[in-house]
Amino acid sequence: MTDDTALQRVKFYQTGTRTVGNRLLTEDDRTVQASMGRSNAITSGHRACQGCGEALGARYALDAAMRAADGRLVAVNATGCLEVFTTPFPETSWQIPWLHSVFGNAPAVATGVAAGLRMRGKTDVRVVAQGGDGGTTDIGFGCLSGMFERNDDVLYICYDNEAYMNTGVQRSSATPPTARTATTPALGDAPGNVFGTGKNMPRIAMAHNIPYVATASVSDLHDLEAKVTRAMGICGARYIHVFVPCPLGWGSASENTVLIARLAVECGLFPLFEAEHGDVVSVGKIRRRVPVDDYLRLQRRFAHLFRKGAEDRQRIEAIQRMADANITRYGLVDAEDDQ
């Protein structure tokens, strides 16, 4: 770490919501990000859009991983927004050793990094691999499954913004039903993405029986840091799937990134949980349940569901049923709290 980054002034990220602010917590309980000792793994000056959830998530995740690894961390990156907005040469936001190879091979490259480090006796250095939803659930899926299956000592973090953002917002297998993307336009009888498709990567990761799988959201950065920290305390293949709104791709206001992420959790569409060796071991309870409408309305990618005088209640209800199913499946709402 260079001197100027160590001296960089601590900024507090304003959450503007019902979360407990860092300042009310004891030093030890504050976020890694709130500490003077944070590593600035991705330092300021990068080119992400204003309000980019991926930039926020990656920054918190990597600084937490850096603290857990005592600063001995190597990061591998798939092609995608994170890779592009943190570079190009000669500029780089990465304060840690960082490698980008191609789009679909980050998990395999990370396997190689981990093996190479072991063979060179650098057993204290840890490895994080990261990619967007497209790089993870589609093109890198084979390599990721291989890395999981071999239980390689890699923490893989997926930043899920539910589409191929870097190439201009195309559908991926993480794009939700009805969402408008450049390849699922809001046209025709059933505008946007169709129902009944897509894959649930955290559950697929769990099916590999790897030691640790978690979902996290930039709406709860404390929780994200805690999960990264837990993951870093474990050896073997670990997977964290982080929900990261993309103002550009979702057609949302940049100041709403954290709010939208919170609404996704509170409506049940994005369940927060942890799993060990294939079994769910903890869930993030919903404190204040909201209808999916609240979440959907803030995003232009769902605007066709809310046309004036022609609200598409049928499809909104179908999305509500998906949220309800998650709430039931993971027990996200305690019976007495259910409103």
């Binding site: 591998v76 190879s101 490259v109 190689g112 093996a115 063979m119 084979g142 071999r150």
Partner: peptide, 28 residues
């Protein structure tokens, strides 16, 4: 000895693992 033999899931992964290993200075 001092060699890790990795059974990968495809040739794309095989060379990608070699890329990662080589990038940390290991002979791959």
């Amino acid at each position: 000895q001092h060699c890790e033999f990795i059974n990968v899931e495809s040739e794309f992964a095989a060379l990608s693992v070699a890329i990662g290993a080589s990038a940390v200075g290991a002979r791959a």
